[in-house]
Amino acid sequence: MISFYKKILALCVAVLFAQSLVADEQIDLKNRFLEKIKEVTLIVENKELSKDERNRNIVKSLTPMFDFELMAKLSLGTAWRELSQENADKFVELYVERMKHSYSAKIDAYEDEKVEVKSIDQPQPNRIALVTDLVSKEEKLEIVYKYHKPKTKAADKDEWLIYDVEIIGVSILKTDRAQFKEFLRTKSIVDLMDALAKQS
């Protein structure tokens, strides 16, 4: 009987331990995220940098957090499979450039806003969603950063990578998928790449 209780106890400890591992992973991710925000805030507040320099530094600091390549692939949906290798590489490159450009433009509009992490969800062992509030004087914007953990970690990338951002319920990736799909109904992938090139 005593050994039975011991087994139960051991199981409890094991479960607790496993849970704390998961919790640690989430806390690590949250801390890493907040560190990045601090880093970016410092760059933004550095008045000695020119606007271009500043934006370049920010993009450089944020790039290891994002899985731009995956985003590019997912944005095309099934059309991705039909691309030639050459077009595929070019598309990824253009998509990444556009994302960086768009991010820089949004930083320009940045004004004394604070980021607060509201909650952390882990729907699957290799997915974590960081639910944050962007708090400004006027309002709170809910922004969700969706992370995945690739099977293999790239040298220049973090262990967990952002593959989608949801701003008050609007997913960047879903929106791109919808508009690319509609665009490709009447136009070709080359036209799409031209349009992307114009944006960055």
């Binding site: 768009s102 609007v170 997913s171 508009q179 509609e182 665009f183 944006q199």
Partner: peptide, 16 residues
């Protein structure tokens, strides 16, 4: 700024 095709882009943002 991020619109490639304005109509489906705005439509999707609104519905989401």
């Amino acid at each position: 700024q991020d619109a490639i095709d304005l109509y489906p882009y705005l439509r999707d943002i609104y519905e989401q």
